[in-house]
């Protein structure tokens, strides 16, 4: 009985850890296939606003499902709190708007698929064929 329950608990933990993997996804029109963490920081803090082919970058974020969002920011090395303060400054200085937020990962995937030059992130297991995966963050 005990053995079985330990097994279950460890399995649950394993699932969580798999879920913690975050995939960075983009619209298929995006001209890059690979991005570094520093590139992601630049894009998500609004420092880089255009792709290499001149298309504007549309940065998407999650409003709910905070675990995934926090995980993403932690993995790229900036806390979501700090990101907010950066955006607040940019907003007040008129240097751009913060990333658009969506209430679910599915909605986010659909929006990326349909928006040219869009970039976002979801849990690895949510990824569909409609978007291309640029980086898996672990």
């Amino acid at each position: 009985m005990i053995k079985k329950s330990i097994y279950i608990v460890s399995l649950v933990f394993l699932c969580v850890s798999i879920q913690a993997q975050v995939a960075v996804i983009a619209n298929k029109s995006v001209p890059v296939n690979q991005l570094k963490k520093s590139d992601l920081i630049d894009i998500y803090s609004g420092e880089v606003r255009y792709w290499s082919n001149g298309d504007p970058i549309y940065v998407f974020d999650l409003e709910t499902e905070i675990e995934i969002r926090d995980e993403f920011y932690n993995l790229i090395g900036r806390s979501s709190t700090r990101m907010k303060s950066i955006w607040m400054k940019k907003l007040l200085l008129g240097e751009g708007d913060p990333p658009k937020e969506f209430s679910s990962q599915e909605l986010l995937i659909n929006k990326i698929a349909s928006t040219k030059g869009a970039i976002g992130f979801v849990a690895v297991n949510k990824v569909t064929n409609e978007v291309k995966v640029i980086k898996i963050l672990q």
């Binding site: 709190t81 907010k84 303060s85 607040m88 907003l91 007040l92 913060p98």
Partner: peptide, 13 residues
Amino acid sequence: WESYQDYSLDFFL
């Protein structure tokens, strides 16, 4: 603090 920043962002928008 994070939530408050969210509100602040919304507020400024």
